[in-house]
Structures are given as structure tokens and as C-alpha cells.
């Protein structure tokens, strides 16, 4: 594990093929600033896979692309191989690396969940960054199990996603790992604090970062921060962390902005507002937010 602070080797180089205004990339940049180059980023298939395209990489440190289902297992192999070499005196502790998993929600909530759960069982020392853009972004934004109710995606074009967003925070916490936090790049101080905390701990750690996605969600890239702030202010994306066996909210929006203000900015929810506002569904969605915070504050 490296606990190195900011260094000249801790910035992602510019010029990636990711979309302008990508909320996931913003979060990754913040994380990388803290972790720096003494890392192996183990990636699963998704938008971020296109960060490293032969022979270029924006990372000052190392990178291993695996497949969609198995980044956590890749992290296991890397971590074990480093530990074995340390134990056998074949590498020095200066040559050690922190193991970071980087995947989207499709992998983290779905295909990669079995491999991740098993890594948690084993207490693997790794930090998992999930950038949650609430859909299979790389394949054209079809719904995933992280897609919020009613959102239009490429596979829910008519009346929106009929399911509800899965609670990955709770699933991780149920494994009793070292650390789980939700975050968003639009709340940089909260994110920075969580990144530092996660980096300083050992064992399995998750940073579950909501990643406003102009392309998949249908908003102007200039609005990424605004959309992110509204996600927090409306209370639809609760900021919280699980540490030492307890889940705590790190920001409680007591004066919550109406959810419609968040939804209205995004093309994926346009059908809730035109031709006429779908008052019933809007009320249901608002109620789900209220119900969540009710059980938190009570």
C-alpha cells in the first residue's frame, strides 16, 4: 500500500478519448492525485478501458485491463504476486504497489459482483473505484442494475427503466469490509476526504462514485458539476460511508431541493416532463427519496 501524497507522478495526463464533462473521469483524477503512480489500476470492460490505448496511457503508474467480470480477481492475482515476492525477498518494499480496481456500475453491480464478493470474503487489500454512470455506457447506455427507476436508456426507450437502483453500498457493507463510501466529484471536499481515508486504510475498500454522464444521461457537458450537486442536494444520491461496522451519512440535505430540478436537466427523464408533466410518476420518485431520508433521520 502506498500512502504517498500528491507528487509530480499523480496527475492523469490530458487528451483521453473520454467524453467532455465525464463525471467518472473527474473522480478518477481526484483519486489518482492521492494514490499517484505507485499503483496498478486493474480495469474491467467499460468506458475507462479506453484510457489506455496502445501505445498511450494517461497514467503515470501501471495498468492491467482484465475483462468485464473479473477485475477484482485480477487485483487478487497482482496483490498475491507482490506479497509473495515481498515475502521471498525478491522485491523491496519500495517496489510494492497499491492495487486499485476501476470499473463501471455494470461490472460492479452485476457481472463482476461475484468476483468482488469473493475478494471481500478473502479480505483482499485493494481499493475499488466504481464510477457509477447508471448504465452500460460503453455499449451505448443500456440499463444496468444501477439504473434509476424511470430513466430512459437504450433498452428502456419507451417508458423508462421499470426496476429500481440496486443498493451496492449495502451489499458491500454486508461483507463487513474496511471501508465503503459513496461520493461524487461535484462535492470535491467530501470526495477528497474519503479518498484520503480509503487510501490510508488496508483491506477491501470501495469508493462508489456517482458519475454524471452527459452522453448517457443527456445533458450539456458544461452541466456535469451542476447535475452532480443537484444529485446531492435533492437527496437522490446520499453521501455516506461505512467504517468500523457503522454506516454514517457525511452530508444530510435537510432542506432538500425538489427532485424534479435534478431530473429536468437530463434528457433521460424528459418523458416525465413533456408533453405534459407525469405528476404521478414524479411524485412516486420524490416519495422514494423522502422514504429513504425518513429512515435515516429517524
Amino acid at each position: 500500500m502506498s500512502e504517498s501524497g500528491p507528487s509530480s507522478h499523480s496527475h492523469l495526463a490530458p487528451g483521453t478519448p473520454l467524453c467532455a464533462g465525464c463525471g467518472g473521469l473527474q473522480a478518477l483524477q481526484q483519486l489518482y492525485r492521492v494514490l499517484g503512480d505507485k499503483t496498478v489500476v486493474v480495469n474491467a470492460a467499460g468506458c475507462m478501458t479506453l484510457l489506455s490505448i496502445y501505445p498511450f496511457t494517461p497514467f503515470a503508474g501501471s495498468w492491467l485491463y482484465t475483462a468485464m467480470a473479473c477485475a477484482a480477481a485480477g487485483a487478487q492475482g497482482v496483490r498475491d504476486a507482490l506479497d509473495i515476492q515481498l515475502a521471498k525477498g525478491r522485491i523491496s518494499s519500495a517496489e510494492d504497489l497499491a492495487t486499485v480496481v476501476l470499473t463501471g456500475d455494470g461490472s460492479a453491480y452485476g457481472m463482476g459482483l461475484s468476483a468482488t464478493s469473493a475478494a471481500l470474503d478473502r479480505g483482499l487489500d485493494f481499493l475499488y473505484l466504481c464510477y457509477d454512470n447508471e448504465g452500460y455506457g460503453n455499449t451505448g447506455h443500456q440499463y444496468s442494475s444501477a439504473t434509476p427507476r424511470a430513466a430512459h436508456t437504450a433498452t428502456s426507450r419507451v417508458s423508462g427503466y421499470a426496476g429500481s437502483k440496486k443498493d451496492l453500498f449495502a451489499i458491500w457493507a454486508a461483507h463487513r469490509p474496511s471501508y465503503v463510501a459513496t461520493a461524487i466529484a461535484a462535492e470535491p471536499q467530501d470526495l477528497a476526504r474519503k479518498v484520503k481515508k480509503a487510501a490510508a486504510l488496508r483491506g477491501p475498500r470501495l469508493l462508489l462514485v456517482l458519475a454524471p454522464c452527459p452522453t448517457g444521461w443527456g445533458f450539456d457537458p458544461a452541466l456535469t458539476v451542476k447535475v452532480g450537486q443537484l444529485a446531492v442536494e435533492t437527496g437522490i444520491w446520499p453521501l455516506k460511508e461505512y467504517v468500523d461496522g457503522r454506516a454514517v451519512h457525511t452530508k444530510i440535505p435537510r432542506q432538500r431541493t425538489p427532485l424534479a430540478e435534478y431530473l429536468r436537466l437530463q434528457g433521460r427523464f424528459a418523458h416525465l416532463f413533456s408533453p405534459q408533466p407525469d405528476e404521478q410518476r414524479l411524485a412516486e420518485l420524490q416519495q422514494a427519496v423522502e422514504d429513504y431520508w425518513q429512515q435515516v433521520t429517524e
Partner: peptide, 26 residues
Amino acid sequence: LDSRLVTLESEHSMLTAAGAAAVTGV
């Protein structure tokens, strides 16, 4: 035998860990 055995949750993960360890240097 001075080795480390880790049981993964599937062969997909097992092979991933195997390959990742081999390209890390063991």
C-alpha cells in the same frame, strides 16, 4: 511447499488471478 494457494469463486476468476500473478512476476 513454499507457495500460496488461494481459492477463487470461479474458474473465470481463478484464471484471471493466475494470469495477473504471472504478469506481475511469479
